[in-house]
Design a protein around this nucleic acid. Sequence first.
DNA 1: TTCGTTGCAAACATTTTGCAGTTTC
DNA 2: GAAACTGCAAAATGTTTGCAACGAA
Lengths: 128, 128
Amino acid sequence: MKTARKYSRKREAILKTLRSTKAHPSAEWIYARLKPTFPDLSLGTVYRNLSLFRTEGLVTSVATVKGQERFDAQVIPHPHFICDSCGKVLDMDMLPDFGPAQGTVGFDGGEVEYCEILFHGKCNDCKQ
Amino acid sequence: MKTARKYSRKREAILKTLRSTKAHPSAEWIYARLKPTFPDLSLGTVYRNLSLFRTEGLVTSVATVKGQERFDAQVIPHPHFICDSCGKVLDMDMLPDFGPAQGTVGFDGGEVEYCEILFHGKCNDCKQ
DNA sequence: TTCGTTGCAAACATTTTGCAGTTTC
DNA sequence: GAAACTGCAAAATGTTTGCAACGAA
């Protein structure tokens, strides 16, 4: 039994915001970004809609950086670079020969559905 | 200026516990495991020592699963399998040809220090 | 005796949730 | 009008921290 869906201006704005940035933002970031346009926006609404998008497959969780979950509207799997210093998350091009990243692969402990590749280091800004 | 270090029975036990399991446990898990032996153990102590181990490089953080940080005393980088259903974390053998996983690689957004490879899926127990 | 370590509880930060009012259909 | 959506604030979680007591050197 699925719940019906109704249009919501705020939900649309949340998804649009996430789709128009490469920042791989946190819920808070999206909230801060939309608050000027929707002064009555609540953080709970951002969380609720993000969680809804995730179950619908419109959004994925890239990683938890400094305690905050970071989201991406680009759901096609691709590697990310995380700056452990400032928390910035950057897209990286798909590396050649990463077969396991797409499709389903078996190993003896379970069934792999997808593969997450996270490069860690210091971004150029933080290397000063 | 580094701080001197003093011996602590509890610290030793925390590290030993982490080293003797393949569970990639959370702080809470270690706490629960040691509580019977150290009835006066405090969760804060577990967190403090884990954080200390991490700065010393004795321990790494594997991932944040269901909101909880998971640790590993095996600090040599290797891929993990995460069961998104029950949260179990399993070791995977190093795949061939994962050069970027060790050493330092450059890309135009920053400097890569290491690479984290996480396979997601359902473990055998959860596939029932 | 000195100073690192710990228990305890309070403080924090992020995320979730209950409820009553609002909006969409 | 029914059901989804939202603001608000409280609650639930996971983690950190201040402080006085404790333990190792």
